[in-house]
C-alpha cells in the first residue's frame, strides 16, 4: 500500500468529518446560550414556524444575529429551557407546575409572552363525504382512554362501517396536552392505540392518505395543506349543526370553543439582558406579527397584543 496515498485518504476523511460536525453544530445550536448574537429557540411545532419566520425576518434586518429554531415539542423544549440550553421555548400551552419546579431547580427565571392564537383543527380526508361537523362529545367518545370505538358507525350509526384511523401528536406536544384537557377533561388522558407523531407533517400525510382517517393538529398545518384535507366544524353542544369551523376570525375571538387557545413563548430572563434578544422580542410583538398569517397561524386581538407588549416592557425594565 502506498503510504502517501493512505495518508491523503486519512486526511481527506478527517476533513470530511470536521465539515460534517460544523454543519451539525449549526443546526442544533448546542451550547449557544451566552455566545454572542445567537438567539436559540426550541419547542412547539405549532409555534416553531412563527418563531422561525420572525427569526428570518429579524436576521435580514440584523445580519450579525442568528436565530436558529428547532422543533421538538413543547414538553421537550421546556426540559431544555430549564437546563439553560435555549433562550426561548416555543410553547403551545402554559408551563406546567412540574416544569416550573425544574426551572427553579436550574435557577432559570423566565417571562411568559403570548404571541398568537391557534385553533386545534380536527381534520379528515378530503374524500370523506359523510361528515362535516363533529361534537365535542363525539370527539371524546373517539379519543377517551380505553375507548372502544373502532369504526365510524360506532359513533353515529349513519356513518360507514369502516375503521377510523386516528392520527394525533405525541405526549411531548402542547397541542396534545391542550386537546386531551379540552376534549377528554384531563390533561394527558387519551386512548393509546392511534398513530402518534411529533412531526405534524407526518400527521398531515397520514390523514391525507386514508379516506377514513381523522386527526388533529395546529391550525397552521391545516392552512399549509388545505388542498389535501377537509376541516371539520366542531360543536361544543350536542348539536353537530351548531359547529364552528376554525378560521382566523373565530379563533381570534374565541368563538371556536373549546379548541381555540393562546400560544406562547417563554424567554429566559438572563437572555433578556442581551440587547439583541430584547430587540428580537420587541420585533416579535411588533412588525414580526406579520409573519403569523404567512405561516397559516392566527394573530391575537389588539387587546391581547397590547397586554403582551406591556408584559415585555415590564420584563425589560
Amino acid at each position: 500500500m502506498n503510504f502517501r496515498l493512505c495518508f491523503a485518504l486519512m486526511l481527506g476523511s478527517l476533513i470530511g468529518c470536521s465539515v460534517e460536525s460544523a454543519n451539525n453544530g449549526g443546526d442544533v445550536g448546542e451550547n449557544a446560550v451566552g455566545s454572542a448574537k445567537r438567539i436559540v429557540a426550541d419547542g412547539s411545532s405549532t409555534v416553531g414556524p412563527i418563531t422561525g419566520l420572525v427569526g428570518e425576518m429579524f436576521e435580514e434586518l440584523h445580519s450579525d444575529v442568528e436565530v436558529p429554531v428547532t422543533i421538538t415539542g413543547t414538553g421537550t423544549g421546556f426540559g431544555r429551557f430549564a437546563a439553560g440550553e435555549i433562550d426561548i421555548n416555543d410553547a403551545s400551552r402554559r408551563i406546567k407546575d412540574s416544569e416550573k419546579a425544574k426551572c427553579e431547580e436550574g435557577n432559570i427565571e423566565y417571562v411568559e409572552l403570548m404571541v398568537a392564537m391557534d385553533g386545534i383543527s380536527v381534520v379528515v380526508n378530503k374524500d370523506n363525504d359523510f361528515i362535516d361537523s363533529i361534537t365535542v362529545a363525539q370527539l371524546k367518545k373517539m379519543w377517551e382512554p380505553d375507548s372502544t370505538v373502532k369504526k365510524w358507525k360506532d359513533i353515529d350509526p349513519t356513518w360507514p362501517d369502516e375503521d377510523i384511523k386516528l392520527f394525533g401528536p405525541g405526549r411531548e406536544s402542547g397541542t396534545f396536552d391542550y386537546f386531551t384537557k379540552a376534549i377528554n377533561g384531563e390533561e394527558g388522558a387519551t386512548r393509546d392505540d392511534y398513530s402518534s407523531s411529533g412531526d405534524d407533517n407526518q400527521l398531515v400525510t397520514g390523514v391525507s392518505g386514508d379516506k377514513y382517517a381523522l386527526g388533529y393538529f395546529g391550525y397552521g398545518y391545516y392552512e399549509m395543506s388545505k388542498d389535501k384535507l377537509k376541516l371539520l366544524k366542531v360543536s361544543s353542544t350536542d348539536d353537530p349543526a351548531a359547529g364552528v369551523a376554525p378560521s382566523p376570525e373565530v379563533i381570534q375571538s374565541g368563538a371556536y370553543a373549546p379548541l381555540a387557545r393562546p400560544v406562547f413563548i417563554y424567554v429566559n430572563k438572563a437572555s433578556l439582558k442581551r440587547p439583541e434578544v430584547a430587540e428580537f422580542l420587541t420585533f416579535y410583538l411588533g412588525e414580526g406579527q406579520e409573519a403569523i398569517p404567512k405561516v397559516g397561524c392566527v394573530k391575537m386581538s389588539a387587546k391581547d397584543l397590547e397586554a403582551a407588549n406591556a408584559a415585555l416592557a415590564e420584563a425589560l425594565k
Binding site: 421538538t72 415539542g73 414538553g75 421537550t76 421546556f78 426540559g79 412540574s98 405526549r171 411529533g198 412531526d199
Partner: peptide, 10 residues
C-alpha cells in the same frame, strides 16, 4: 421516536 421528543419528568 424516543430521542426526538420527551415529556418532562419522563
Amino acid at each position: 421516536d424516543a430521542s426526538f421528543g420527551e415529556d418532562d419528568a419522563q
